[in-house]
Amino acid sequence: MNAGSTARTFLAPVALGVLALALWQALVVAFNVEPFLVPSPVGIAGAFADGVSNILSASMATGLNALIGLAIGAVAGIFVAIMANALGFLDRMLVPLVAALAVIPIVALAPIFYAMYGAAEETGRQLVAAVAVFVPMYLNTLHGLRQAEPVHRDLMRSYAATKEQTNRILLIPGAVPYVLTGLKIGSSLAVISALIAEYFGGPAKGLGRAITSSAAASNYTVAWSYVLGAVLLGAVFYGVTAALESFAHRQRSGR
């Protein structure tokens, strides 16, 4: 990556972010906007610094649920996609089910899982995240499994390869980039889903509960500091999966 590419990739977004924050601060000061409407970036940063230990603790709780949900959803999505690719009737059966899962709102799932497993348990939040991750993982994996060239499939058949061998040698390795793209998309969905699920009760130790509790107590700047914590948590999840995807691409290209 040359210097110009580095500037475009990293420095330009940072410069835009700094400009947006400066404009936000200037507008809040110029129009004397009350914190219950929109706190200033300086105020949010101060609240974040004062409560960094609490924010870190809440981020760990939400992040753990998101990570477990991401793992469950990813494994399930990959496995079901492999089965659907191998069995045509299963693929046809899953089309309406996956479409239904894709449009189910998180706010409807969370209370159902809480009723099933108890609001005091983290299981419901983890399953909400898993359901959100399953759809992009399934769709991306299935798409990747179907990208093998016909000539390569014919070659495997000419060698009398079994379906298991074709999957292991040809289809699954070729689907890896698509799987990693699904994982990158799912990582952000896992954090969002785990965060939203916390709005519906349960242990008051995650970011979602901290945001609602702070807002209910009229501590709006503190609530925004927890929002900042959620943004950083999502960025960490996305950054790790994006780095994993980039590493896999470099390995495949031999660089």
Rank of each mutant, 00 (worst) to 15 (best):
K163A: 12
A76H: 03
F79A: 14
G144W: 03
N85E: 12
L139S: 11
H249E: 15
L56E: 07
S218P: 06
V75M: 08
Y117K: 09
R125P: 07
A148L: 13
G88W: 15
Q25S: 05
A235F: 03
L101N: 03
A108R: 08
E198W: 11
T221H: 02
G118K: 06
S253L: 13
G239Q: 02
A100L: 08
F31H: 14
N219P: 09
V75F: 15
V128H: 04
A119G: 14
I169E: 03
A49Y: 14
R125W: 09
S253Q: 13
N85S: 14
G4N: 06
P13Y: 00
L23S: 06
V133S: 02
V42L: 10
L180Q: 03
A20I: 03
G229P: 00
Q25E: 02
V95E: 15
V28A: 09
A215W: 08
S57P: 00
P177W: 04
M93R: 14
L232K: 04
V38D: 03
A7Q: 01
L19S: 02
A84C: 07
A216G: 13
L56P: 04
F36G: 05
E149R: 12
E164H: 12
G201F: 07
G229M: 05
G46I: 12
Q251D: 14
A230W: 04
G118R: 00
G239T: 04
N167K: 12
F134I: 00
A243N: 08
T141V: 05
A30G: 15
M156N: 00
S193V: 04
L127K: 05
T166C: 13
G174W: 07
G51K: 10
A115G: 15
I192V: 11
L207H: 03
L232D: 10
V80C: 11
V128P: 01
N140E: 11
G229V: 03
H143Q: 15
L145P: 12
P203D: 04
A190K: 00
P111A: 12
R250C: 10
H152Y: 12
L97S: 10
G239I: 02
A110G: 12
L67Y: 05
K163G: 13
I106N: 13
I78A: 05
E149N: 13
I104V: 12
T162M: 07
H143N: 15
I55G: 00
L56A: 09
Q165M: 06
V179S: 09
I192Y: 06
V98E: 13
Q165L: 07
N219S: 11
A119C: 15
P177E: 07
R252P: 04
A61K: 09
N2K: 02
L195R: 01
E198S: 01
I196T: 05
R8W: 00
L207F: 08
G174Q: 09
A242Y: 08
A74Q: 06
F113K: 02
I68A: 02
D154T: 02
A160F: 11
V75T: 10
L87F: 14
F31L: 13
A30D: 15
P150Y: 11
F134E: 01
S57V: 03
A61H: 13
A3W: 07
P150D: 15
F237G: 00
A81Q: 06
A74T: 13
V95A: 15
